[in-house]
């Protein structure tokens, strides 16, 4: 345990250290001297663009998974019979058994211009709507598989189980007697959901959003398979430390998700998400 912690924290510290070095433009070598110039480079508009794009995507994916996961988890924990619950569990977990890469490429085909989804949309008479969405300069692209919308859809799909499981666990832990007490005191079902169930399952939502948020922040496969030419943090880190050998800038970029997650966890703690753990 101690050893694992040592390795983990040690590599994080090395990362932090590296981010204060800089790359000599002439020699292409890393200069091991303390400087803030790498961070100066990081905070240029084009790089900040990447940061905001990634964080925005992570936020959107997190919100979408919450909205999708909550009703399903609620159904699983309150209404499903034992058999149904087993089947739903299987349905949620089964995708995790197949390779993540396979699923991402499968989605590329589904979303492609001649793919099944576009075919379905055009037959459903919603081609105009799709075109309107794709022509949006921020989220659009030449096709679903080459646009931020596509990235968003695939991220939401691949991270959904990580949101369902913690929310479901939190809902399971809400005692039935609390729901009865709420109803007994005059709360109608929606009032009970809002005043009792939602606050008590909040820790589950936070736990799930930590997964979806950090997984999206760090991922480089989905945007490179599906996206257009605009980069995400993961891709930038990969290219800086691989192709261009700019380890300091890659390290500095890596610091951003870490800082975002730390701030996020602090806010969550302030909101009392961990009190009920």
């Amino acid at each position: 345990m101690l050893w694992m912690g040592g390795v983990y924290l040690g590599s994080l510290a090395t990362l932090l250290l590296n981010s204060f070095f800089y790359l000599d433009g002439f020699t292409g070598l890393v200069v091991r001297r303390f400087t803030l110039s790498t961070y100066q480079q990081l905070f240029t508009p084009s790089n900040m663009d990447i940061v905001f794009r990634t964080a925005g995507m992570a936020l959107a994916v997190t919100l979408a998974t919450i909205i999708l996961a909550f009703p399903l988890s609620y159904y699983m924990s309150r209404y499903a019979s034992k058999r149904q619950k087993g089947l739903l569990y299987l349905a949620v977990l089964l995708p995790l058994w197949s390779s993540y890469l396979v699923r991402v490429y499968a989605w590329k085909l589904i979303l492609a211009k001649e793919g099944i989804l576009s075919w379905f949309i055009s037959h459903a008479g919603a081609q105009g709507l799709l075109d309107a969405l794709l022509s949006n300069p921020v989220i659009g692209g030449s096709s679903l598989s080459l646009s931020p919308i596509g990235i968003f859809v695939v991220f939401t799909y691949v991270w959904l189980p990580y949101m369902i499981l913690p929310i479901h666990a939190a809902l399971e832990r809400v005692p039935r007697s609390l729901l009865e007490a709420s109803s007994d005191l005059g709360a109608k079902p929606l009032q009970t959901a809002w005043n009792v169930i939602l606050p008590l399952s909040f820790p589950g939502v936070v736990a799930g959003s930590i997964f979806t948020f950090s997984l999206t922040l760090g991922d480089f496969i989905v945007p490179s398979v599906l996206g257009n030419s605009s980069f995400f943090i993961g891709q930038v880190v990969l290219s800086h430390q691989g192709t261009s050998g700019n380890i300091p800038l890659a390290a500095a970029f890596t610091m951003i998700p870490i800082v975002i997650m730390i701030v996020y966890l602090l806010i969550a703690r302030k909101l009392g998400a961990f009190e009920a753990l």
Binding site: P175, S177, L178, E180, A181, S182, D184, L185, G186, A187, K188, Q191, N195, V196, P199, L200, G272, E275, A276
Partner: peptide, 26 residues
């Protein structure tokens, strides 16, 4: 009618005041 539960079934995320006020707020 109102019930006092064996397990009390108090809302842990609310204060004593909020617990008692719950029914009136509803």
């Amino acid at each position: 009618v109102n019930t006092v539960f064996q397990s009390y079934a108090l809302f842990q995320h609310m204060t004593v005041f909020q617990n008692v006020a719950f029914g009136l707020e509803m």
